[in-house]
Design a protein around this nucleic acid. Sequence first.
RNA 1: GGGCGGUUAGCUCAAUUGGCAGAGCAUCUCGCUUACAUCGAGAGGGUUGCAGGUUCGAGUCCUGCACCGCCCACCA
Length: 716
Amino acid sequence: MEIPKAYKPDERESGIYEIWEKSGYFDPEKLPPGHKEPFSILMPPPNANDPLHIGHAMFITIQDILIRYNRMRGKKTLWLPGADHAGFETQVVFERKLEEKGESRLDMKRDEFYDRVWNYTQENRKVVKSQIKKLGASCDWSKDTFTLDDKVIKTAYKTFKKMADEGLIYRGKRLINYCTNHQTAFSDLEVEYVETKTPLYYIKYGPFILATTRPETKFGDTAIAVHPEDRRYEKYVGKEIKIETLLGERMIKVIADEAVDRDFGTGAVKVTPAHSEADFEIWQRHKDEMPEPIEAIDKEGKMTSAAGPYEGMSAKKARNKVAADMKEKGLLQRVDEDYIHNLSVCYKCKKEIEPLLMEQWFIDIKPLAEPAADAVKNGDIKIIPDNYRKIYLHWLDNIKDWNISRQNWWGIPIPAWRCVDCSTEDNPHWIITEGDEPKKCDNCQSDNLKKDTDVFDTWFSSGQWPFATLISEKEPELKKYYPTSVMETGYDILFFWVIRMVMLSLYRTKEIPFKNVYLHGLVRDENKEKMSKSKGNVINPIEVSEEYGTDALRMSLTIGNMPGKDAVISENEIKGYRNYVNKIWNMFRFLMMRCNDYDPENNPSLTKEDENLLKEFTEKAKEITDHIDRFEFSHAAETLYHYSWHRFADEIIEESKEVLDDQNKKSGRQKVLITIFAGILKLAHPFIPFITEEIYQKLPLKDKKETIMIEEWPIN
RNA sequence: GGGCGGUUAGCUCAAUUGGCAGAGCAUCUCGCUUACAUCGAGAGGGUUGCAGGUUCGAGUCCUGCACCGCCCACCA
């Protein structure tokens, strides 16, 4: 048998993956009978709107290590793959594509748009699936789930209905974060803050001078607020004062509220409840003293009729115009041009978020937050690394109600109908179902019902992923994999996804969704910068996997990668691990050349030295196993790397060359070398599955299994 | 404003309960020796960010500071 000097991963990998798939062992139910205790992971479903990036390759590597390791330890392992329709994200991606073709969503019917995005995601799913396979993921494709599959949507509807019935869902006119560019509301998590230099205008309101960054909102002012203990303004509190606006004179109430900072500006603030979160809160505390909020800006970001002559003007334009006009009328005392404050912007387009008063569906989140905090406090859910415990608990401690309405087209429609006949402006009547269209109003029997046009925040449904995928009447056998063993995902979606899964799962199933949360970091380039297409520093996992082999890529994503910390990766590093994989190949090559007369059925006598070598291997195997059990994959892989190369190859093989020439000791040493090497392959298999399978198939072993995937782990 | 993480060899990172500061990559020298040059043998390279403190002993524990990064909140 001629063995080539260099291992060529690209020629072997796809064939090896086929062997695994054909074996059926990705499906836990098809594993040999010895596999009993369940071990499960849900793959965070990659967005079905783009090919995979290096971050996906990282989590696939980590999860596959866990799955392959536990499978070899005799667990009944389920790794459930999926794909995310990624509502708003995908809509943005798709609209950009439309734009490139000179098309627009607004030129088509909603259904048509939906169908086109649907097809687009289905095409992408195929690409993503083939890429996941390329990376060696041993996941159960028979259970591949899309976040718009019936069972997921039904689960989301059931939860929504249950929450509505239990009073945890309310529809309220509240101040929400609105992106006038994307024409949708967001939860607080989708808002980012950017430090910006903005002029601070000091405007005259009767006897008051008020500092504001947004003079155009003055048409929505319904009060002036001062601190209750501010002597300067004491005499005005509770009184109405006459102010000169650009629309003529009017009266406005002065109120006292603790939230006002005496030291900022002049210590007096204009209150605009329809366009500022803080002001909205002031209004809620002083409803009896203040008129209803006045909306001065609309959903397009344009001035309303409340702004008189400024109506129709964009808010930004109006800001300058209003300031200029006030200056002319002597209503502007001065302008501080160097004022720096945090501007809230849309996380996607970075354009200013417009706080608007809108009716939306909210979840009363506190009742869900407490059990979620308890689950971590009492140790039912363990977070790795554990410093994220605090972050997790702190977030839940300060949680605000969750706005789950989105004004997008791509997403799960909210199953709510408004009765046209028995609703009033102030008191609308809504009918919420588990998805079925109601025939009649449950209140007035009218059939004049109008469906809500909004869709759910994608995280509302993905927050139900664990039980949506594993708990259903149709597939009761999957229940045993719930709660899952590990939720492996990025720290950047701890709030978005992980915590919401905990809250919603506890709510619906009364059980935790997973026992461990392992948080990985971001992948950065060699200059520690975030990888992005625009910077041109991205490493395409598929390209490097084709060039250097998936095993090398996986190794470089494992070593030096600590939980909760960003990982640095470079092509150079991958090249280094390509060399390591090739080194293993050559260990195999050496063994084959020097053991051509080796018979695995023989039991030659071993020398003391032989015994010691075996003992040493067992110790190393123990060390590596302990590391994996503690989720220290980097250490595990590093220990393996070091032992296999610098101990086994550099020393043990070198020293064995002489021993193999000694006819008395030869067969014993052959046995030892092959035994240890087979052990190394098994230990290495979770990390570098392809080469280990390739060699395993060719190695002369007793009781060889169909694939190394179901080999027994070298130690117990 | 609140919180978290980091600062160790040129680079990326390790260092269990405090116990001789280690790897990989890079660099330099030598070697194409019959597994492998995608390799081997060897070498250089550190006042562990700064200042104190506890201790027989501190990279590790305590206090303060500096710088870098991140998260959360947000005052007009």
